[in-house]
Amino acid sequence: MSSMIQEIFAFIVTTSSWVLVCSTFPTNYWKVSSVDGNVITTASYFSNCKDFPSMLALDGYIQACKGLMIAAICLGFFGSIFALVGMKCTKIGGTDNSKARVACFAGVNFILSGLCSLSAYSLYAHRISSESFDPMFVAQK
């Protein structure tokens, strides 16, 4: 009984994390800069992905981040399906041995999905922070 509760809890946590990754992907604002002076002169500047006519016109690191996010979403979706089939409390999937193999495959999918999303977020954050702290960078910070 305890292992089924752990499986259900793990399924809920991994599926909710996949939903959160899915919710961050379709945002259009990729860079936000704000200039704060006194109360009167406050401005925010957005770098929007809609400004570009095609996906190939974006910077290379944004294309890489979007590709990694798409891979993370696809792997997480298939991981959720495999986890649902591999759980002991579901009636689909066959014997316990085949369910164990499917659950192991689901775990691998979730790990790869997490690594893809983590590397996409890290790549983007590194690029933004390195541009922000670079004194030779002349564009909007």
Rank of each mutant, 00 (worst) to 15 (best):
Q63H: 04
A103W: 03
A43V: 09
T41A: 10
H126Y: 13
V13C: 12
V13A: 15
I5P: 00
Y29L: 10
K50H: 06
K88N: 13
K141E: 01
S23T: 09
S16A: 07
T41H: 11
F52T: 06
I5A: 11
S80C: 11
L75S: 01
A106K: 02
I8Q: 14
T41Q: 09
S33H: 13
F9C: 15
A139Y: 10
Q63R: 13
W18G: 08
A57I: 03
R127G: 00
D134T: 01
G94Y: 03
T95V: 05
N38L: 06
K31D: 04
T95F: 04
A10E: 06
L115D: 02
F11R: 03
L58F: 05
V102D: 01
G114F: 04
C74H: 10
Q63V: 04
L84A: 12
V138D: 14
F133I: 06
G107Y: 05
G79T: 06
I40M: 12
M69T: 04
T90W: 11
Q140L: 09
C104L: 12
L123N: 10
S23K: 09
S129P: 00
G37S: 13
G79H: 07
L58Q: 01
I92Q: 12
T27H: 12
V13Q: 03
S117D: 02
L118Q: 08
T14G: 04
K99S: 05
G79L: 08
V85H: 02
L68F: 05
S34F: 09
Y45Q: 13
I92A: 15
I81N: 00
L84Q: 04
P53F: 04
L115T: 08
G86P: 07
L123M: 12
G94L: 02
W30D: 02
L118W: 07
A64K: 07
M4D: 13
F133E: 01
F78S: 05
M55G: 06
K50A: 06
L68A: 04
V102C: 07
K31P: 00
I70W: 03
I5L: 12
F9R: 15
S113R: 01
S3H: 10
I62K: 10
N48Q: 12
G67M: 12
G79V: 05
I128N: 10
I8R: 15
D51H: 12
V21M: 08
A83E: 02
G94E: 01
I73K: 05
L123Q: 05
T95W: 01
H126L: 08
A100K: 15
M55S: 13
V85D: 01
S130C: 03
A72C: 09
L84V: 02
L56S: 10
S2T: 07
A71C: 13
Y29I: 14
A57T: 09
V35P: 00
L56D: 14
Y45D: 02
S2G: 07
Y124L: 07
I12H: 05
G93I: 03
